[in-house]
């Protein structure tokens, strides 16, 4: 942390975050007090075995779920106690999601999939142009009218990345982005993410269990039993 100047505020600031689930009478303590800061322009991997709480943490960072206790500041906005609809606006404006299974809508073509977040935005002007620009930035300017089933897995994931970027979010949250891809496509998607991080200074949070993916990140956060394990920073 001493590497980062004090003047720069973290884009993600998680303080003593806990999350309990109830399965019947049994309390599952998925997160047991997470402290974590991620700064603008960083590319961070969150790793951990299954059951370690990394999915829960990702849902918290992605504002898909509310913590049981603790504070979460996203882009200086306290989001840990927002209502559902306020969280929806935060997700729309501040977070770009990339899922393992792409999650593109099969009925509509690439450009409409990319434009989907814009439909839920306040600013619905120039939707087409903004979606086109996002698709071009992931190198799919020539595939705009293709439906998801007319695209390869790698291309679909790039459409999903374009969709995540279209609203110019504060962070890109990628959950096992290469998990469904063959190694060549996976490599291309990782290269795209690295390029976005380096050239456009996009803050990227990767959730993965694949060490080779994590290697591309500047640092890795290891989760174990709902807690961050030992030294946060790796060279």
């Amino acid at each position: 942390m001493e590497l980062t100047p004090q003047a720069v505020k973290p884009v993600i600031d998680v303080q003593n975050l806990t999350k309990d689930y109830y399965i019947g009478e049994i309390v599952v303590r998925a997160l047991r007090g997470i402290d974590m800061q991620i700064f603008p322009g960083e590319m961070v991997a969150i790793m951990g075995p299954s059951g370690s709480g990394k999915s829960t943490l990702m849902n918290m960072i992605g504002c898909l779920d509310s913590p049981t206790s603790g504070d979460y500041y996203l882009d200086s906005l306290r989001v840990s106690d927002l209502h559902d609809d306020e969280l929806a606006i935060v997700r729309n404006q501040k977070i770009g999601f990339v899922f393992q299974k792409y999650n593109l809508l099969p009925r509509i073509d690439a450009i409409e999939n990319v434009a989907l977040p814009l439909r839920y935005s306040e600013d619905t002007s120039n939707m087409r142009q903004r979606a086109e620009a996002a698709l071009e930035s992931v190198g799919l300017g020539d595939r705009m009218r293709h439906k998801p089933n007319e695209l390869s897995g790698g291309q679909q994931q790039r459409v999903a990345i374009a969709r995540a970027l279209v609203n110019q979010p504060a962070i890109l949250l990628a959950d096992e982005p290469t998990g469904n891809l063959d190694s060549q496509s996976g490599k291309e998607v990782m290269e795209l993410l690295i390029k976005l991080n380096q050239q456009q200074n996009t803050t990227i949070v990767l959730v993965t269990h694949d060490p080779t993916v994590a290697l591309h990140a500047q640092r890795t956060i290891q989760l174990f039993d709902g807690l961050i394990k030992a030294p946060e920073a790796i060279a």
Binding site: L64, D85, A88, F97, F99, N103, L105, Y120
Partner: peptide, 16 residues
């Protein structure tokens, strides 16, 4: 259901 989840992740409110 998945589509609804996705739309919500992308910023759809309950009303939407």
């Amino acid at each position: 259901t998945r589509e609804i989840g996705l739309r919500k992740a992308l910023g759809a409110r309950k009303f939407d």
